[in-house]
Design a protein around this nucleic acid. Structure first.
Lengths: 388, 388
DNA sequence: TGGATTAACTCAATTCAATTGAATTATCAA
DNA sequence: TTGATAATTCAATTGAATTGAGTTAATCCA
């Protein structure tokens, strides 16, 4: 589970690979863009970008979008990502179900699926994931042969740690190389991640943080998770377990953060008021009804969330903090509007270019889509070089 | 103050630059190493590495160290960094003084200096820094023309933030482009950073974390700071203010972390016991005497530090946490030995390859040396590419 | 002791992917 | 209509890597 990131030298082939990624990234960022502009952004010559664009068009990853006239000079031919140019599979393995989504190159979900899971042994899970993948390819035959890879979300933390066995992790997966197993089963490059990290990446590909390179993401899952993006890449930590913010002790009535802010927390709180709430829709209904028990929970949760924001801001100094996850949209909105933003923070600046707290994606599929986004990000982002 | 990291494409020249960095990095890491081994580590051909080594030797950055026989085959000629091959200036600007150090390519300090500072206006500071630099070059004439750059540490946070004006930041610097001013004054590439981030990098270049790519560093300065290294690079945050861990509220008797763990904290505590302690040596003496007031402070401080470790471990999942800064060595040792390591942490793993908490550099010059290390790291580390 | 084996190293030729420079095209502005 | 501007293309060049065929210096083993 230790990721030993290969320190690699560069040669012509690897340079071209990097430049292709960077060009795709610029196209993705701009939506539609001309070659000369890409060349300026990447400090390459227009000739080079022309060659790369021709190659990418040949590969079916780009389409022409006509010319855009901007003042004097010949109008630039605009290029955009061709949605059918590549696909990423996103899979989320939960204790009771497997979720899957197939995203096209632009990040749009072309098919999604959920299958129930009776047991979580590796064999069973691998079978289901393989089946789900096969089914997705049947649904979208044009994706065959154009798969970029699969992002797979599993409940963290990975490996044996002090917060394992807290109920969220899967039995039977503690000591196996999950990425290798999946990769062998579905014959695709696989990126493994926890829910929060994946969801964080989704915001960069399709969501609220597309123009941002450094941001933090607070994810409502069973617990509370954190995803960190720095320099356009996920900060995964040495063993892939970065972002376990839920287990941090906080001042206040609760022992740790996710006792105050999480789906489990609200369920427990509502149960004490004799309300047995199991899914997002039921929660949404209570929220629409302004249910008193829910409202008191929200108050404490907002305070605790403010605390989480304080920690994250002071530790990472992000451009913004995105709030998302498996919660009703209305409740996310409520959090964004009512979480007290700490004064004592490096992010409390007078002319901040971004709001300190913004709303991200919501709903059941958030992490599943994020899983696929991990793959898309790899295709669309070149690791940035420190300019000198 | 916003760092917009340039997304750059690659070409032959930039590839070579990257490969030179990577080769130097391998040599630095190994101490002495042969070309074929470097080639394997970087996935380059031996011929390429041969060419680069020849170039670097011509440039005076490497020296031959004889042959090392290792089993069969022709013994490899070993290469090592040539100390005189390059120099980095480290400068720390404090409210009352400017510290400077000149490090050679291997990270050894060849000259250090301290000059008192009456005022901290940019003009005054720039004059002093320029003078200190000139003096360093006089002391070490061979460094002339071989300067790689200057790392400059100033009290953070940079820019206008919610924790500005807390007494640590410098007056007159809030709204200037400090890096540009320094760079113009001393005519060197400049990297700006706060004390904790710089000190963190020092551990990677010369200290306790040379083989690590992902670790956290807790720094005792006036307050308590955090430095994060991920993938061999500093996590600076969007505005360069990442790591302000001291301002985080913690459970316990103190409002925020650095009320319990910092130089100011211990000074305040000792003052209540009628002990006026101003420098590290005096503190060390008290520690040697097992002074009762100091010991009670240490007890609370250890608990608070354990809390900081819990946060850092769960948020970053680092290989280790390094403890260092402007404290007597004995006290750092005490902290490393007595800080309670939280059970509820992703770093609490059964077969951890590294201790969870280790001791880093201590003493007054820690951040100054770290400042120079920022420059050396740039020369010795190529940004890592995610292998595919 | 001496040949086989192994691995590091060198030289020359080749290849890849960038840059350079000159020419062409399409639009805007006067 | 004409000149300026900027995007684009084509052909030649360059820089830095790889490839492939030797050469050298050590260990292993008969």
């Amino acid at each position: 589970m230790i990721s030993t990131p290969l320190q690699q030298g560069s040669n012509a082939e690897r340079s071209r690979h990097r430049n292709r990624q960077a060009v795709l990234g610029q196209v993705h960022l701009a939506g539609a863009i001309g070659r000369a502009e890409i060349a300026r952004a990447l400090a390459l010559t227009t000739q080079t970008v022309s060659n790369i664009i021709a190659e990418l068009s040949d590969d079916g990853m780009l389409i022409e979008k006509g010319r855009l006239s901007a003042g004097r000079g010949q109008p630039a031919i605009q290029y955009a990502l061709k949605p059918e140019g590549g696909y990423a599979l996103g899979v989320e393995v939960r204790p009771d179900a497997v979720f899957a989504a197939l995203l096209d190159l632009t990040g749009r979900a072309v098919t999604t699926e959920r299958v129930a899971l009776a047991r979580t042994d590796p064999d069973i899970v691998l079978d289901h994931v393989t089946a789900v993948y096969a089914h997705a390819l049947d649904q979208v035959p044009r994706a065959r042969g154009r798969m970029l890879g699969a992002g797979i979300v599993m409940p963290g933390p990975f490996g044996l740690t002090g917060i394992a066995g807290m109920g969220t992790d899967l039995t039977g997966w503690q000591e196996v190389d999950a990425a290798a197993l999946f990769s062998k089963a579905i014959e695709l490059p696989v990126v493994l991640s926890n829910d929060a990290n994946a969801a964080a990446m989704a915001e960069r590909i399709t969501g609220a943080a597309q123009e941002m390179n450094s941001y933090a993401y607070l994810y409502f899952g069973a617990g509370l998770g954190l995803g960190l993006i720095h320099g356009g890449q996920l900060v995964r930590g040495a063993y892939g377990n970065a972002g376990e913010i839920g287990h941090i002790p906080v001042p206040g009535p609760h022992a740790k953060l996710e006792d105050a802010v999480s789906r489990q927390s609200v369920q427990r709180h509502l149960l004490a008021a004799e309300l047995d709430v199991h899914d997002i829709d039921a929660l949404d209904q209570l929220f629409e009804q302004k249910n008193a028990a829910l409202m008191t929970w929200l108050d404490t949760a907002c305070d605790a969330l403010g605390h989480a924001v304080a920690i994250v801001e002071n530790l990472f100094d992000p451009q913004t903090v995105v709030l998302g996850g498996a919660m009703p949209n209305g409740i996310l909105e409520h959090f964004v509007a009512n979480t007290p933003l700490p004064d004592l923070s490096v992010s409390n600046r007078p002319h901040a270019p971004h709001p300190r707290l913004i709303q991200g994606a919501s709903g059941r599929m958030t992490a599943t889509l994020g899983a696929a986004a991990l793959i898309l990000n790899r295709a669309l982002t070149a690791p940035l070089s420190h300019a000198h």
